[in-house]
Protein backbone atom coordinates (compact mmCIF):
# COMPACT_ATOMS: atom_id res chain seq x y z
CA UNK A 1 0.00 0.00 0.00
CA UNK A 2 1.04 3.52 -0.74
CA UNK A 3 0.32 4.46 2.85
CA UNK A 4 3.23 2.41 4.09
CA UNK A 5 5.73 4.59 2.26
CA UNK A 6 4.13 7.95 2.97
CA UNK A 7 4.88 9.53 6.33
CA UNK A 8 1.85 9.33 8.57
CA UNK A 9 -0.24 12.45 9.15
CA UNK A 10 -0.29 13.63 12.74
CA UNK A 11 -3.71 14.19 14.27
CA UNK A 12 -4.41 15.90 17.59
CA UNK A 13 -7.80 15.95 19.30
CA UNK A 14 -9.13 17.66 22.39
CA UNK A 15 -12.32 18.43 24.24
CA UNK A 16 -12.63 22.05 25.40
CA UNK A 17 -15.96 22.75 27.11
CA UNK A 18 -17.34 19.56 25.61
CA UNK A 19 -18.74 16.40 27.13
CA UNK A 20 -16.57 13.86 25.24
CA UNK A 21 -19.68 12.79 23.34
CA UNK A 22 -17.99 13.72 20.06
CA UNK A 23 -14.92 11.69 21.00
CA UNK A 24 -17.25 8.78 21.79
CA UNK A 25 -18.81 9.24 18.37
CA UNK A 26 -15.33 9.31 16.86
CA UNK A 27 -14.69 5.92 18.51
CA UNK A 28 -17.98 4.77 16.96
CA UNK A 29 -16.02 4.40 13.73
CA UNK A 30 -15.18 1.11 15.53
CA UNK A 31 -12.72 -1.12 13.68
CA UNK A 32 -12.26 1.54 11.00
CA UNK A 33 -9.98 3.13 13.62
CA UNK A 34 -7.39 0.56 12.58
CA UNK A 35 -7.68 1.58 8.91
CA UNK A 36 -7.29 5.15 10.07
CA UNK A 37 -4.12 4.55 12.12
CA UNK A 38 -2.46 3.09 8.99
CA UNK A 39 -2.60 6.64 7.68
CA UNK A 40 -2.40 8.79 10.80
CA UNK A 41 -0.76 8.86 14.20
CA UNK A 42 -2.11 10.63 17.27
CA UNK A 43 -0.52 13.61 18.96
CA UNK A 44 -2.29 15.14 21.98
CA UNK A 45 -5.62 13.41 22.49
CA UNK A 46 -7.60 11.99 25.41
CA UNK A 47 -6.43 8.62 24.05
CA UNK A 48 -2.72 9.37 24.53
CA UNK A 49 -0.66 10.86 27.34
CA UNK A 50 0.71 13.76 25.29
CA UNK A 51 -0.18 16.95 27.17
CA UNK A 52 0.63 19.64 24.60
CA UNK A 53 -0.16 19.71 20.91
CA UNK A 54 2.98 19.60 18.73
CA UNK A 55 3.14 20.32 14.99
CA UNK A 56 0.20 18.46 13.42
CA UNK A 57 -1.55 18.08 10.10
CA UNK A 58 -5.07 17.89 11.51
CA UNK A 59 -6.46 19.23 14.78
CA UNK A 60 -9.93 18.17 15.90
CA UNK A 61 -11.66 20.35 18.48
CA UNK A 62 -14.68 19.26 20.46
CA UNK A 63 -16.42 21.71 22.77
CA UNK A 64 -16.85 25.45 22.90
CA UNK A 65 -15.02 28.04 24.96
CA UNK A 66 -16.26 28.29 28.56
CA UNK A 67 -13.06 29.28 30.36
CA UNK A 68 -9.69 30.93 29.82
CA UNK A 69 -7.84 27.63 29.62
CA UNK A 70 -10.09 26.52 26.73
CA UNK A 71 -8.91 29.61 24.84
CA UNK A 72 -5.22 28.82 25.48
CA UNK A 73 -5.60 25.21 24.34
CA UNK A 74 -7.52 26.31 21.24
CA UNK A 75 -4.81 28.83 20.32
CA UNK A 76 -2.12 26.16 20.83
CA UNK A 77 -4.01 23.85 18.47
CA UNK A 78 -4.46 26.59 15.85
CA UNK A 79 -0.78 27.51 16.01
CA UNK A 80 0.29 23.88 15.53
CA UNK A 81 -2.31 22.36 13.21
CA UNK A 82 -2.35 22.93 9.46
CA UNK A 83 -6.04 22.04 9.30
CA UNK A 84 -8.42 22.69 12.17
CA UNK A 85 -11.78 20.94 12.39
CA UNK A 86 -14.61 21.99 14.72
CA UNK A 87 -16.54 18.89 15.68
CA UNK A 88 -19.97 18.93 17.27
CA UNK A 89 -22.53 21.56 18.22
CA UNK A 90 -20.49 23.10 21.07
CA UNK A 91 -17.44 23.83 18.91
CA UNK A 92 -19.60 24.89 15.95
CA UNK A 93 -22.13 27.17 17.66
CA UNK A 94 -21.54 26.99 21.41
CA UNK A 95 -23.96 24.11 21.86
CA UNK A 96 -26.21 23.70 24.86
CA UNK A 97 -23.77 25.36 27.33
CA UNK A 98 -24.35 28.58 25.35
CA UNK A 99 -27.86 28.59 26.79
CA UNK A 100 -26.27 30.36 29.73
CA UNK A 101 -25.28 33.30 27.55
CA UNK A 102 -28.31 35.46 28.27
CA UNK A 103 -27.64 35.13 32.01
CA UNK A 104 -24.97 36.83 34.08
CA UNK A 105 -22.10 34.56 35.10
CA UNK A 106 -22.40 35.76 38.71
CA UNK A 107 -26.04 34.69 38.91
CA UNK A 108 -25.17 31.23 37.60
CA UNK A 109 -22.25 30.69 40.00
CA UNK A 110 -24.43 31.92 42.85
CA UNK A 111 -27.17 29.46 41.93
CA UNK A 112 -24.90 26.47 41.43
CA UNK A 113 -22.63 26.86 44.46
CA UNK A 114 -24.55 28.95 46.92
CA UNK A 115 -28.26 29.39 46.65
CA UNK A 116 -29.40 25.92 45.70
CA UNK A 117 -31.28 23.86 48.23
CA UNK A 118 -28.88 21.56 50.09
CA UNK A 119 -25.77 23.71 49.75
CA UNK A 120 -25.36 24.65 53.39
CA UNK A 121 -21.78 25.86 53.45
CA UNK A 122 -21.50 26.36 49.71
CA UNK A 123 -19.16 28.98 48.31
CA UNK A 124 -18.00 29.87 44.83
CA UNK A 125 -14.63 28.16 44.11
CA UNK A 126 -11.78 30.63 43.72
CA UNK A 127 -8.71 28.39 43.83
CA UNK A 128 -5.90 29.82 41.68
CA UNK A 129 -5.48 26.37 40.08
CA UNK A 130 -8.92 26.65 38.49
CA UNK A 131 -9.28 28.31 35.08
CA UNK A 132 -11.35 31.49 35.12
CA UNK A 133 -14.77 31.06 33.51
CA UNK A 134 -15.58 33.31 30.56
CA UNK A 135 -18.46 35.72 30.74
CA UNK A 136 -20.12 33.94 27.81
CA UNK A 137 -19.68 30.64 26.01
CA UNK A 138 -18.25 31.09 22.51
CA UNK A 139 -18.08 28.83 19.48
CA UNK A 140 -14.46 28.37 18.43
CA UNK A 141 -14.75 30.20 15.10
CA UNK A 142 -15.32 33.42 17.06
CA UNK A 143 -11.70 33.18 18.30
CA UNK A 144 -9.61 31.36 15.67
CA UNK A 145 -9.97 30.50 11.99
CA UNK A 146 -11.61 27.13 11.55
CA UNK A 147 -11.11 25.20 8.31
CA UNK A 148 -13.93 22.64 8.51
CA UNK A 149 -17.05 22.12 10.60
CA UNK A 150 -18.82 18.86 11.45
CA UNK A 151 -22.13 19.81 13.10
CA UNK A 152 -24.19 17.43 15.23
CA UNK A 153 -24.74 16.65 18.90
CA UNK A 154 -22.83 14.48 18.43
CA UNK A 155 -22.09 14.02 14.73
CA UNK A 156 -22.38 10.33 13.85
CA UNK A 157 -19.29 8.15 13.57
CA UNK A 158 -20.12 7.88 9.86
CA UNK A 159 -20.14 11.68 9.45
CA UNK A 160 -16.74 11.97 11.16
CA UNK A 161 -15.39 9.09 9.08
CA UNK A 162 -16.66 10.74 5.88
CA UNK A 163 -14.94 14.04 6.61
CA UNK A 164 -11.66 12.40 7.66
CA UNK A 165 -11.53 10.06 4.67
CA UNK A 166 -12.41 12.91 2.30
CA UNK A 167 -9.60 15.02 3.78
CA UNK A 168 -7.06 12.15 3.72
CA UNK A 169 -7.93 11.51 0.09
CA UNK A 170 -7.45 15.19 -0.73
CA UNK A 171 -11.16 15.78 -1.45
CA UNK A 172 -13.27 18.68 -0.20
CA UNK A 173 -15.37 17.12 2.63
CA UNK A 174 -19.07 16.84 1.89
CA UNK A 175 -21.73 15.38 4.18
CA UNK A 176 -25.10 15.46 2.42
CA UNK A 177 -28.48 14.26 3.69
CA UNK A 178 -28.42 11.80 6.55
CA UNK A 179 -24.93 12.78 7.68
CA UNK A 180 -25.52 16.49 8.27
CA UNK A 181 -27.45 16.86 11.51
CA UNK A 182 -27.68 19.55 14.18
CA UNK A 183 -29.26 17.29 16.81
Amino acid sequence: MEAATKPKLRVATTSLAGCFGCHMSFLDIDERLFDLVKLVEFDRSPLTDIKHCGPCDIGIIEGGLCNAENVHVLREFRANCKTLIAIGACAVNGGLPAQRNHLSLASILEEVYHAQHGLVDGFIPNDPELPLPLDKVHPIHEVVKVDYFIPGCPPSGDAIWKVLTDLLAGREPELGHGLIHYD
Partner: peptide, 14 residues
Protein backbone atom coordinates in the same frame (compact mmCIF):
# COMPACT_ATOMS: atom_id res chain seq x y z
CA UNK B 1 -2.10 16.22 46.12
CA UNK B 2 -5.29 17.62 44.68
CA UNK B 3 -7.60 16.73 41.79
CA UNK B 4 -9.21 19.82 40.28
CA UNK B 5 -12.51 19.67 38.45
CA UNK B 6 -11.93 22.40 35.89
CA UNK B 7 -15.17 22.43 33.95
CA UNK B 8 -18.09 24.66 34.81
CA UNK B 9 -21.08 25.03 32.51
CA UNK B 10 -24.07 26.04 34.62
CA UNK B 11 -26.75 23.56 33.50
CA UNK B 12 -28.31 23.89 36.99
CA UNK B 13 -29.25 27.47 36.18
CA UNK B 14 -30.05 27.53 32.50
Amino acid sequence: VRLHIVEFRGFEKF
